[in-house]
Amino acid sequence: MSDAVVPHRAEPSAAVARAGTSWFRRALDSDIFYSFRRSKLTMVAAAVTLLFFLLAIFASVLSVQNPFDPAQLQLMNSRISPLWTADGQSPFLLGTDEQGRDVFSAILYGLRISLVVGVLGVVFAGALGITLGLIAGYVGGAVDGLIMRIADVQLTFPAILIALLVNGVAKSVFGNRLDAMSTLVVLVVAIGLSFWVQYARTVRGSVMVEKNKDYVAAAQLIGLPAPIIMLRHVLPNTMGPILVIATINLALAVITEATLSFLGAGMPDTMPSLGTLIRIGNNYLFAGEWWIVAFPGFALAGLILSINLLGDWLRDALNPKLR
């Protein structure tokens, strides 16, 4: 989008007064930030998302114990209810589970795992989908036909089914007892392989439009190789929709990871994500120990809802038809 059409833009002299902060000022003056400031719900969603990321990053500072370190767990402290109830004990704000694990600390560490798997899954899916989409759109012909046919077939199946299958096959190839880090990698690959189609389709569509424009012809004329034209010239012009898909996919990736872990096909009990914590906590629901499952559940729901709201806003804000 060109600066000239932005109606509420600051005077250029003010914007370039200090070159070092000009990108920041330009960001503050942009259409996107304007629509961001106009929507209170979006600002709340952004704040909550940011809070979750900060909690995950600083998990080791904020938690009272490391829930992965068996030496720090004491069975004496098991099944304590949250602090504000009659049987609550300091420092266990949200109570403890059956192994004496502080629920709040477990949520912080679980949040970290969930977000790492989610973000890496989105990055992997995006890299795979963008590459295949660029190739399909730019090369065309039989290659395009093959890639898009695979995409069509895959789109018929729900992502969770594909992720479960990838997971099962990986377990069988590498042996049933994978360590926690390898499981994390398998989950990232499973999520990536389930969600690449949307990127590929979007990128392919944009590339088909872009490649007939003059700047691509000019780049071809001066003899640039195809990969350079694709990455340096075509790709930047397809980034808007990709950003929207990535945001909404982050929520989906977090849900998928949590679901796999809940089904017992994801992160193991020794290195639990939010989904694993919910699966463990679910076993204690009937004993009346609701807090073991409730708080990880709230955390997961809050995280997904706020990312979804951000994604919805971003889609509308980047859509020129709605301006």
């Binding site: 679901t259 809940f262 997961l300 729901a301």
Partner: peptide
């Protein structure tokens, strides 16, 4: 309903 995972 769209944001909550089925198992929750």
């Amino acid at each position: 309903g769209i944001s909550l995972p089925t198992f929750l």
